[in-house]
Amino acid sequence: MSSIWEYANPKKFIETTDRILPALAVLTGVALLLGLIWGFFLTPDDFRQGSTVKIVFLHVPSALMAINAWLMMLVASLIWIVRRHHVSALAARAAAPVGLVMTMIALLTGAIWGQPMWGTWWAWDPRLTSFLILFLFYLGYIALWAAIENDDTAADLTAILCLVGSVFALLSRYAVNFWNQGLHQGASLSVKSGERMDMTYKLPLYVCMAGFVLLFVVLVLIRTGTEIRARRMRVLLARERMGA
């Protein structure tokens, strides 16, 4: 029988990830190095933004992963609620700090980029504000995991928080858009936006995005493995106490 749920078995999960992780890590390193070197050194300066534009190669991929990490947590939470696979709950738990850091990188690089462009480190622009709110959601989610001792209780509560939080994060996005029509440029790659990117920037940016996606996958796999081993340790300790 071969189904994707096979990998919901912690043992199988660890075996598989241990096998593919080295290759995946190398691939991640190559993609990131290639993308960032290409982006930073081998692209021309923008005629308006100068070399500041090159921070886009960090800013856009991290912003992308900040949102996708939450989406992944949402899917993993749903899988936990519906099918109750422990690996799924642990993967959601493992992804949260990674998502938090990605959000932080997006905010920081945004501030560094915004200073020369808009003349300010921070503006209550809808996009910036949305990311700040997302940051708060990550903090709450991680804090709730940390506060509860029982693993299954924590998994249940954080999964429900993730679902409810997703709805409210989406609502906040619309609310913030309504509240302030900001100065942020449109999505960097969107077709509609006026300032479309040139191919010379797009290609290295795609490579960087792939690198960040791989980086996220690698980090989450490692962290999920760690969570599984920690959980296994607790089971073993409990069994030892039972035997005594």
């Binding site: 709110i133 708060l136 959601f137 903090l139 709450g140 804090a143 709730l144 506060a147 928080l161 409810v164 939080g165 409210f168 994060a169 609502l171 906040s172 619309y174 609310a175 913030v176 309504f178 509240w179």
Partner: peptide, 16 residues
Amino acid sequence: LLSLLVLPLYVPTLIF
């Protein structure tokens, strides 16, 4: 923790 969890959820209500 309650404040940390609830305040982000209050954002849309507060804004509107």
